[in-house]
Amino acid sequence: MTLFNINSKLCDIIFYDSSVISVINRFGINLGVGDYTVAEICRSHNLDENFLIVIINTFLNEKYFPERLLKTYSITKIVNYLEKTNSYYEQFQLPNIERHFNLLIMKSNADDGNLHLLKRFFDEMKNELLFRINFDRQEWFPQLLQLGNTTLDEDIELDNIPESAHPIEDKLNDLKSFFIIHLKGKYDVNLCQAVVSSIIALEKDLKQNNRIRERILLPFERALTE
């Protein structure tokens, strides 16, 4: 497991795993990062360098979850990050999959209807994710922000967090399996690869950020409302 710090060069982090580009984008950092360190770039963008590096490390490492550290940040900061994440799904990642999917269907002459079935399945997953985003935006996040600009007391009992079902992640996993294992017929290979890559990118993003929702936000909400 590689952990970066605020003195790491951002370009080195991107060279290490380019999927982090989607994370820095939602903080307003675009490519063309020069050879500046995370701390230097954060200063020029007026960002909290420690928060950014925690988010980057959490995103890159499935087995790393700095629960104590994340709890030292205000709930406003975490909610703002997740709101930007939701917007990124809505404005970039979902449309990106959809665009490639539509092109794939258009350019494939397969008449067995499999791709149309898979597209319908994608639409179902997309609608569920958009519904969740809307719920976050209209109800859950405003409620959390109303609870105050507090940090979560480390001593609060966090046991008994129920195992959450992840229907959206399950569907993304299924979609990936359909393409990788069960696809039949002749299709445009480049477009197929584009669809699969964009599905995998969204699946990873959701999975990593769900950990923040479930291990930071949900316990915070329970601790302050019970």
Partner: peptide, 16 residues
Amino acid sequence: KLGIRSVSGLSVYALM
């Protein structure tokens, strides 16, 4: 065996 977890995913597989 199928790598498919959701009920609607299983339905799509069954249709396909």
